[in-house]
């Protein structure tokens, strides 16, 4: 586990994550707007709303600009014949090993945002855990899914 996995996920992931984060942040800004309206109607100080507004800018910078970039930079995976090797995490870096013989099933999943970028999430389940590889190119994702499921079928061993 000394070397990191070789493959990166799709570059478009950053854009997809940014859009998803923007949606959440815009909900926050709507609430901030509502707080301004309330402050106007009920005549209390604007300072809380102003504070919330600046917090919103900060959160926006972190969640829309910074995190997707860092997350993409850290995310790596590699599929071997015998196991799957995943690396993720920004502050806490996690490297996971999943032996093929422990894989129970593999799913691909695609939300509206990922679909726009022709991306998909592959999630790998063992009997005790589930691991996601987010945002692979559609064709890579289905190829990966098929590959893992054939590899996983090769060996049968008692649990």
């Amino acid at each position: 586990m000394r070397e990191q996995p070789k493959n990166r996920i799709a570059k478009e992931a950053v854009k997809a994550w940014r859009i998803a984060a923007s949606i959440y942040i815009s909900i926050y800004f709507i609430l901030v707007l509502a707080s301004f309206v309330f402050a106007y109607i009920f005549k209390f100080t604007y300072w809380y709303s102003i504070g919330a507004l600046f917090l919103g800018f900060l959160l926006g910078f972190i969640f829309i600009y910074l995190l997707p970039k860092l997350r993409y930079r850290r995310w790596r995976y590699e599929i071997f014949d015998q196991e799957i090797y995943i690396q993720r995490g920004i502050l806490v870096m996690t490297r996971t090993l999943i032996p093929m013989i422990r894989v129970q099933h593999v799913d691909t999943e695609q939300g509206p945002i990922l679909k726009r970028f022709k991306l998909a999430t592959v999630s790998i389940s063992t009997a005790a855990t589930t691991h996601d590889i987010p945002a692979l190119r559609e064709e890579d994702a289905s190829a990966l899914r098929d590959r893992i499921s054939t590899l996983a079928r090769v060996e049968e061993e008692d649990v």
Binding site: T96, I98, R102, A127, V159
Partner: peptide, 10 residues
């Protein structure tokens, strides 16, 4: 063979 997945975190 009973360990389903192994994780190193840092």
């Amino acid at each position: 063979n009973r360990i389903q997945a192994f994780e190193k975190t840092q």
